[in-house]
Each structure stands twice: as structure tokens, then as C-alpha cells.
Amino acid sequence: MKNLDPQLVWAFAGVLGLLSVSSLIGLVLKAVIKKPEAQSTISNLNARIGAWWIMSAIFALTIVIGPIGSLVLFGLMSLLALREYVTLLPTRRADHRTLFWAFFIFTPLQYFLIGIQWYGMFAILIPVYAFLFVPTRLAIAGDTGSFLERASTIQWGLMICVYCLSYTPALLMLRIPDYGRPAKLMLYLVLVDQLSDVLQYVWGKLLGRHKIAPVVSPNKTWEGFLGGILTATLIGTALWWMTPFTPAVAAAVSLTITLMGFAGGLTMSAIKRDRGVKDYGTLIKGHGGIFDRMDSMCFAAPIFFHIVRYFYVR
């Protein structure tokens, strides 16, 4: 297995252990707690853990396959996230062909550019070319009603679901001296970001009292926020050995990832509240849609990428 760096194997072993412990806790909770009002929380928890097993297996498999695997996985996630996003927003008949470009031209092209490691084009395809293309194509379509709203809806969807998310596999094109496989960096980002989400949920369920943003996201509490950010940052620091960072830098970077992730979750919640829904989709059991799971990644990945690129790539 040439794609398996020993540090990568250790990290996966850790994930496996964590999932096993979580499943055990889920089973114990289900057997012990008989209060009817807690039942829905516990069954949702178990559904989430089940989905985590599947997501981890898919992610691990694509890393073993190599960069192509990760590109295909994130490319598909971008398409699914974009689909969930546009379904929620009001689009019009005249947007049809522009949306076709967004889905079937810009999205594959973005991931193709990562595949051929053309950084200069990857970084500007959507913020420059697609940004200017979308309003032009809409103007050609000839419907001027809510023009700016429709153009920005599509631009924003491309930026978040495609551009920002694509920064995760883009980590694979970074060449860091004396580091080994950059897949470790991608796994590190995903681990810290997703653990931060999970830990915020766990701390919130255990101790949550004071709502942090009652209007936007009624489930987010100060206790969940502080507990989740703190513990995820500690884990991120403890995992410094799989990164090019010193432990102190790993702590700062983890804190940044977790804070950006929180910002992402909050922003996407604001859109959901505005559109009057709870989740973007139903694809992942217990979690909602792809977009609900990836909202924090969309904000954390670009910042993480640029920190690493600025400070660690020659």
C-alpha cells in the first residue's frame, strides 16, 4: 500500500477506536435510559453514529485510492451540496442554462484544475471567471426580474459549495519539504473540523443552557461552543505529529479551524432560517443533507489552506 504513510494509519486507527467507543456509548444509552422524552435524542444520536461509520469508511477508502479518489469524492459532494442549496432558493425558468453551467462546467473544471495542480487557475476560476460569467449568461437569457438577487444566489452557491469546499482536496497539491503525503494534512483538517462539530453538539446536549444565537440557531449554546472549541483545539494540538506544525502552532491552527467552522455553521443556519427549513437535505441519516454536514468545512478549508501555503510551502 504505497499510499499509506504510517502516521496516516495511526490516525485512521484512532478514528476506528473513537467510532467503536461512540457506538458502545450509544448502545449503553439506548439500553439504560428509558425516559420517553430522551428517546428521540438517543435514536438521533445512534443514527448519527451509524452515518459516521459510513462517512469515515468512504473517506478512508478515497484516501487509500489516492488523489483521484479524493477529487471524485469532493467533486460529488460539491454537486450534491449545490443541488441541496439551489433547491432551497427561488430560481426562475431563465436561470436554467446558467445553472447547467454551474453544475456541469464550472464544478468539474474546478476539480480538474486541482487534479492537474494548476494553482493559479484553481484560485481564480470561480471568484473571477464564473463571477463574471454568471450575470452575463443571465442577461443573455433576458429575464430581468430580481436580476441581482438571482445572479448573486448562483455566484454564492458556486463560491460556497464548489470553490470553498474544493480547498479540502486542494491541500493535496501542497508540496511541503520533509513532510510526506499531504493526505495527512487533509485528514487533519477534516478530523479537527468535524470533531469540533461533534464536540459542540455533545457539550451542548450535556451542559447547554445559554443560547448563543437564539434567532439563527436555537440549538447552539455558549456551553456547547466553548466546550467544543476547547476540546477540539486540544485534540488538534495533540495531533501535531501528523502535521508540519509545532504543538504551539497546531493549537493556533486548530483554534482557527474550529472558529471558522463555527462561523460556517452559523451562516448556513441563517440561510436555512430565512428559507424556513431545518436541514438542507435528508441524504445522511440523522445529520440532514451533505450541505448540513459540510457547512463548517466550507469556511475552515480555504483559511487552513492559505495558512499552510503561506507559511509552509517554500
Binding site: R83, V86, T87, R93, H96, R97, L99, F100, F103
Partner: peptide, 18 residues
């Protein structure tokens, strides 16, 4: 719901919506 958004009358290429 939404099938008109996936493939509206007069279009031949579908766009994915749920």
C-alpha cells in the same frame, strides 16, 4: 414538486434539483 426546475418545458438538458 420541482420537476419543472429539473427539466422545464422547452429545455433538453436537465439541472439537478431535489
Amino acid at each position: 414538486n420541482n420537476l419543472n426546475r429539473i427539466l422545464p418545458k422547452g429545455e433538453f438538458l436537465p439541472v439537478p434539483f431535489i
